[in-house]
Design a protein around this nucleic acid. Structure first.
Lengths: 194, 194
DNA sequence: CTTTTTATATTACGTGTGCAATGTTAAAAA
DNA sequence: TTTTTAACATTGCACACGTAATATAAAAAG
């Protein structure tokens, strides 16, 4: 047997290079050659670990979502149920170290999900998971009195997520208007109005 | 002098064809040849009215924003200041006839604005206008008591817009979960919490 | 050492792109 | 009627793309 390589690790390595390229040049700029150059490999390597460009992009999209899930779990573990935990969850959607590149990656995948059925399916799964986590925590927050009594749980959940996504996007495209303190202030303002 | 053609009209015609293609195939699918085919022209026509592909896309982005401004003005004219008018404004961000294609166009331009400085500049101008309109109406709404006393006007404005954008995106990518009645319900729920 | 199998590298090919150059058409002005 | 010029069409080119095919390197197994 020849040189031993951790396949999953290599795939992640390539996917992360793809993110960096997408963040810099957009999805259309994420060519196999450019991704390979960014990763320090040749295109032959990428071909060895991914059937084609689309599978690589799909893998990258899935991976970014998995990492988001992990950060959601962290946020839950690190903060007590209620408003604090909701704030931490929103902080995952709108991370404090928000780079334009990160938003470019998200927007790129979302834009692709709007026209490509395969990526849309990936997106739907990701979103269902995200929403379930948020909803659960909204229920807990309501039990602790962090949500106005009488509010519909699903409404609050969807409002939270929509706000987080919108803010993430606007802030990524216009970082001067939405520096980190301003983002935190908006999140607090939103939570206070729940 | 030869045949007379309204230049602006032709440009709009081409831009609208570009939207349809982007809505169908994404921005990367919006090639000159495909846009020309969609518009019923040859690529020669497009070359005659636009310097290059980028200018065409920039024009299309500007045009879509202008039309949005017009719809905002309509919404203001048709609804009394206060909660009703805010609802109408949100209805412009999240139109009742939300097609996936429309969201694909928006996401495509946003994604491009994340990596292309020229498109980012266009986006910033658009957003400044949008925000100014919203802010003005939030002030009026507060005066009528449609906003909780003591709320910061800028906070409320940004929360409204972020929510609207986020909902528009999520709904466009997942229309089954967010049919029109659900979207209206969410908007009302948000306004009630102001 | 030889064989086998995987990782990585290289090259070539067909396709489609944006764009430039050039040709054709037709209508308005002279 | 002739000329002029904008509108539109066509063709070709250089380039970059994704991918297939193939070659080389390397390491475990016999």
């Amino acid at each position: 047997m020849p040189k031993l390589v951790d396949h999953d690790l290599r795939r992640e390595e390539v996917a992360e290079a793809a993110w960096r390229v997408i963040g810099r040049d957009g999805i259309e700029g994420a060519t196999l050659r450019e991704i390979a150059r960014e990763a320090g490999f040749t295109t032959g390597v990428i071909q060895h670990y991914f059937r084609d460009r689309d599978e690589l992009l799909a893998f990258a999209a899935r991976l970014i979502s998995q990492q988001g899930s992990a950060r959601l779990a962290e946020a839950i573990a690190d903060h007590p149920a209620g408003r604090e935990r909701l704030r931490a969850l929103l902080g995952v959607l709108v991370p404090s170290s928000l780079r334009a590149a990160r938003v470019a990656v998200l927007l790129g995948f979302w834009a692709r999900a709007a026209t490509d059925p395969r990526h849309n399916a990936i997106y739907l799964k990701q979103y269902a998971r995200l929403r379930a986590v948020f909803r659960e925590q909204v229920v807990l927050a309501a039990a602790v009195g962090a949500v106005a009594p009488g509010s519909d749980v699903d409404d609050v959940t969807d409002r939270l997520i929509a706000f987080g996504d919108g803010l993430c996007m606007r802030a990524g495209l216009d970082p001067e208007r939405y520096p980190e303190p301003r983002r935190r202030q908006l999140i607090d303002s939103l939570l206070a109005a729940l």
